[in-house]
Design a protein around this nucleic acid. Structure first.
Length: 473
RNA sequence: GCCGGGGUAGCCGAGCGGUUAGGCGGCGGGCUGCAGACCCGCUUUACAGGGGUUCGAAUCCCCUCCCCGGCUCCA
């Protein structure tokens, strides 16, 4: 089955055909580390992580690079304001970012830092000057946009007036829309030595340099938030295609929709930025991740804690369901005797898995895939768990595992070691049995106390006429 | 102003020419010592407004209204 993707470059849905299958080279524009990572960042990074995980599920091999911009005007400004070195600022927020990736189960193969690739950037810029695509002026270097005839093809801006950028350097630039590749250092600013004197790299150049350095000049997917289309990605294309003469340098440009707060974009001036560390105080990272993966990556998400709490319930239901299935699957009554009715259930499980995968094949549409996850949960509760049949539980678990390759919110449930799980099972069963003795004799005070104590360990006990079941909260 | 993305039942949100997607919430019921979880039923034949094309439109075309984003830095 083919995968379809929406390409910002062509504004169309296209059949996904990587340059050199089964390898897929993926570059995602990472953060400038001058402040805490926020939910908007998470949206983009989780979206691309899910896309990558889905491609892996489909049998592709992926190489994923996501840069860290650790030198930039904003970092310098912040350092000056706080009276600390720019390196300290970069380090604090780099750590915050890496921690966020880990919590959200985002796996990146390369996290290159701009400051570690300054030599390559200087070389890249020199080559652009040699080829006539860039010029030195007053100790800075600018890209000569007029020389790159296809400028504007990604953002579909055709008029020069729409390209204005970095206007404060108008005295040095030939055209208002030329952009800086190398920025001359002012006194007191951090700098690196270069053929044009002390300075630091411009913002756009690092992504061109690092993506080509780690992934080569034929990149399958390049992504980021929609706000990066212009000027950042437009400039990256100009730099890279001018430098290497390759076309297209990137085959598929993918952009994530915004995450807004009460309908408005997060911004410093509105003061509505929600840092991840705040979200994680009360909510599990997996809940946020589940919400983000089950929303289409291009649509706007109007974030609210109420919305997140909806997914919290879904997450709890999912977890309990899988947990119960695992316990059934571990029973020793496997005989693979399956009735016709069981077979029908098994077929439906397969249908749900297939539906999930097909939905993801359609431009990684997590929102379209979500109902199949719900169907799988539902059939587990209505048919599989009550039946207590390990054969069916195993089949459902297999489907959940596949879905989880993309979702990545159940890793801890699946990774609990067999022995450990068995031991905990037996231990909890003993406690529950003891509680039953109290219940049988009507001593509900002790029974409730036991239930309460188990709950404090994250173990939820549920009584029914067939005895008690339990699961992790 | 220009360029994008949208407006779908209380809320979130798929579908994008023909089988009442799904979830969340609410209400009622079942189960239960209580509670929770879970199950069943209802809320649900909804698609901004107007016109057109069609045997048939939430889906295509035209007009209007409204919301959000981008157009110096931003995931």
């Amino acid at each position: 089955m083919v995968i379809k993707v929406y390409n910002t470059l062509t504004h169309k849905m296209e059949v996904f055909e990587p340059f050199n299958p089964p390898i897929i080279r993926l570059y995602v524009c990472g953060p400038t580390v001058y402040d805490y990572t926020h939910v908007g960042h998470a949206r983009t990074y989780v979206a691309f992580d899910a896309i990558k995980r889905f491609l892996k599920l489909k049998g592709f091999e992926t190489v994923h690079a996501q840069n860290i911009t650790d030198i930039d005007d904003k970092i310098i400004d912040r350092a000056n304001k706080e009276g600390v070195s720019w390196r300290d600022i970069a380090e604090i927020y780099t750590n915050d970012y890496l921690e966020a990736l880990e919590k959200l189960r985002i796996e990146v193969d390369f996290s290159p830092k701009a400051t570690q690739h300054v030599d390559e950037m200087i070389d890249f810029i020199s080559k652009l000057i040699e080829a006539g695509f860039a010029y030195e002026s007053h100790g800075s270097v600018y890209f000569n946009v007029d020389k790159f005839l296809e400028y504007g093809k990604l953002s579909r801006r055709t008029k020069g007036e729409e390209w204005r950028q970095e206007e404060q350097f108008m005295r040095e630039k030939r055209k208002p829309y030329d952009f800086v590749l190398w920025k001359k250092a002012k006194p007191g600013e951090p700098y690196w030595e270069s053929p044009w004197g002390p300075g630091r790299p411009g913002w756009h150049i690092e992504c061109s340099v690092m993506s080509c350095f780690y992934l080569g000049t034929k990149i399958d997917i390049h992504g980021g938030g929609t706000d990066l289309i212009f000027p950042h990605h437009e400039n990256e294309i100009a730099q890279s295609e001018a430098r290497y003469g390759v076309k297209p340098w990137v085959k598929y440009w993918l952009h994530t929709g915004f995450l807004t707060i009460k309908g408005e974009k997060m911004s410093k001036s509105l003061g509505n930025i929600i840092p991840l560390k705040d979200v994680f105080k009360e909510h599990k990272p997996e809940v946020l991740r589940l919400m983000l993966v089950l929303t289409h990556y291009r649509s706007t998400i109007d974030f609210s804690y109420e919305l997140l709490e909806q997914y919290e319930r879904i997450y709890d239901r999912l977890r309990s369901c899988v947990d119960l299935l695992i316990r059934i699957a571990h029973k020793e009554n496997l005989n693979f005797k399956i009735s016709n009715q069981d077979l029908k259930i098994a077929e439906r499980i397969d249908e749900f898995l297939l539906g999930f995968i097909k939905s993801m094949e359609d431009d990684f549409n997590g929102a379209k895939a979500a109902p199949y996850l719900h169907d799988l949960i539902s059939i587990s509760y209505t048919s599989i768990i009550p039946s207590g049949k390990a054969e069916l539980a195993l089949r459902a678990l297999n489907a959940f595992k596949r879905m989880n390759q993309v979702l990545a919110v159940l890793d801890d449930v699946f990774h609990t070691k067999g022995f450990e799980r068995e031991f905990v099972d037996k231990l909890v069963k003993i406690v529950i049995d003891v509680r039953h003795m109290h219940r049988a004799r009507g001593d509900y005070e002790v029974a409730d106390k036991i239930r309460e104590l188990l709950a404090s360990l994250g173990i939820k006990v549920m009584d029914s006429k067939d005895g008690s079941t339990w699961s992790y909260v």
